[in-house]
Amino acid sequence: MSPNWLLFPGNTPLSNAKTRMIARAAREIAPGMVVNLGIGLPTRVVDHLPADFPVCLHTENGLTGIGPSLPPDRADRNLIDAGGAYVSTVPGSAFFDSATSFAMVRSGRLDLTMLGAFEVSSQGDLANWKIPGKFSPGVGGGIELAQKARRVVVLTTHTDRAGNPKLRDTCALPLTAQGCVSRVFTEMAVIDITPQGYALAEIAEGVSLAEVREATGAPFTIPHDTVPVF
């Protein structure tokens, strides 16, 4: 079961916790990286990078060097990201076709991708594209990103809307890719996937170890004497 405050809608402690999680995930991006940010929470990571931070953002529909999002009145009708948001270019941007875009992905040119998740397993399996009978819009570029980016991290709420843990021993839902996830950022914790399973790397301010344990569907180790707070 999740802590009570997870159930509050709107601008509540969850929103603050989510923002803190996104800001923490932004620190995962090192200068010089080529990065693909998945649709949803990961897209917001870029808001927490300094404007002059040296990074190359990739989007599947054929752009490297994504600039800031634009409101409709300033948008270019031919310039969107893979989620359909109107974006801009930066000095040095490049456009290319869909085969070239995924050649970059499959050949390991992406240093990092940040993706959402329905479920993650303690072996790093990821399920984020299909809930049989409920949600099956297609996989898009998700499989290739998950399978081929050099590092895959997940940004997600710790539990689903019903309070069920998203971090589990094994995934019950159809997989996007096996053994691909290195690290999970949630509003409660930063959790690494290790050969021994989950390991608690950091904990969110105001969250207790007991609460993380209760909201996590599998055991985790605590590799260091003190758990840093974010």
Binding site: E60, D97, S98, A99, F102, V139, G140, G141, G142, E144
Partner: peptide
């Protein structure tokens, strides 16, 4: 009837 492909694989099949 819908057949889903991974996006880059659809591109490669067409290529």
């Amino acid at each position: 009837q819908v057949e889903f492909n991974a996006q880059g694989i659809l591109a490669e099949r067409i290529r």
